[in-house]
Design a binder for these strands. Sequence first.
DNA 1: GGTTCCGTACTCGGATAGTTGTTGTCCGAGTAATGAGGG
DNA 2: CCCTCATTACTCGGACAACAACTATCCGAGTACGGAACC
Lengths: 159, 159
Amino acid sequence: MRMAEGVEWAAHVCLLLHWLQEDDPTPVPAARLAEAYDLPPAYLGKQVQALTRAGITESVPGVRGGVRLARAAADITLMDLVVAIEGPDDAFVCTEIRQRGMNADRPARDFLRPCSIAHAMRAAEVSWRRSLAATSLADLSDDVEPRVRQDARRHFTRV
Amino acid sequence: MRMAEGVEWAAHVCLLLHWLQEDDPTPVPAARLAEAYDLPPAYLGKQVQALTRAGITESVPGVRGGVRLARAAADITLMDLVVAIEGPDDAFVCTEIRQRGMNADRPARDFLRPCSIAHAMRAAEVSWRRSLAATSLADLSDDVEPRVRQDARRHFTRV
DNA sequence: GGTTCCGTACTCGGATAGTTGTTGTCCGAGTAATGAGGG
DNA sequence: CCCTCATTACTCGGACAACAACTATCCGAGTACGGAACC
């Protein structure tokens, strides 16, 4: 059970977009973002497409086009990013094996209540999701050294 | 990011072993466990091997051999099962892309503090792990209808 | 009758293919800037 | 000098391979039981 690497990329890229937009709302090409963190340009573009489909970013076509955050950094949570890249499905999926094999002939009446294992797994995932939903891009940005943010802006305005 | 199906199998199988051992400590062959829930016998055997390596179950070779829980059900948590099957690694792995690309020439001094994204992801996973570690097999067993438990025992003593 | 030994059947264990999902790449559709030409 | 328009370069977007991990299976090593032979 390993999370897709695109989640990490999306998070860093969205943070970077947030920094760049604090004083310049012009969109940034995905290829430029990839170059900033030495990532495969085409593949990062695919991830950015997923972010756009999820409404986290909005893409501007054309010669001076690119991508930018669709809403304020305080309104974008890590949960949003994970759902955009990984999809909304839970990690643990209950296949109801308790109703198979020796219990195949048992009436469905005995399985009205959800599987206790699935219930516990779901509770744990809800805890995980709550933690992610409580962390916004703005929160993350506050924990990054100001020098790094400033130099990132400088890097993009310079070129 | 989908969890391996073996986790579900391991949980159900361990619960079943717990029920069977409440009045009979003789080991149960893995093939019998697979038949109980209509699972692929060979593949379930592989998962049981992982449980044994993790010290959750102990296997008895020989003609009347099989597998049984290595310790009390109250001392086996869902976290133990997940670690045994999926491995101990976190789902999110930080590859430190913040130090690459435009920040490649930055002194390591600026990256002493952990990446804020990785930090938030880790906090969420810790929350998930705590929830799993707080749930033991005994807790799960209490939420299963007594009829199901009793019939499971009956199914195995009858054959 | 008790004991020893051997054969056997059954168990786990690791090594071996098949399939799905993630990673990585490429080329085409669409759009806005840009320059030239005309009014 | 200003407006119109065609060209052009650049962007995103979805379709196309390569790789890894999970899923599934098989056969071999090891062990305890069971019976037969022997004392």
